[in-house]
Amino acid sequence: MGWMSISLDEARHVAKLARIELDGAELMSFQGKLNALLGHFEDIQHLDVAGVMPKPHAVSLSNVFADDVPGACLPREVTLALSAETKAGLHIVPTIIED
């Protein structure tokens, strides 16, 4: 098991951060799998990477600019057809600010 092995509580916290509801058995299973992976990840901890610039992208590009020109929008009926719930031509979404 890796040097940064995580506890069941930590696994629960990661699932919460990831917005994934897991039952007890699933959580146990994921804790084991996460720890197995973290154990494998230990190999790069011993590499000397001092002074190496990180490579965040495959092929680096500098800023990409586009003219600020309005384009066509998707028709309302097309976007409404994608919605889980609609009413009177509107998207119905859950309340996100609760009392």
Binding site: I44, L47, V49, V52, M53, P54, K55, P56
Partner: peptide, 9 residues
């Protein structure tokens, strides 16, 4: 961050 450095190598 370390993975991105290894990626660069």
């Amino acid at each position: 961050l370390r993975a991105q450095q290894v990626r660069a190598l």
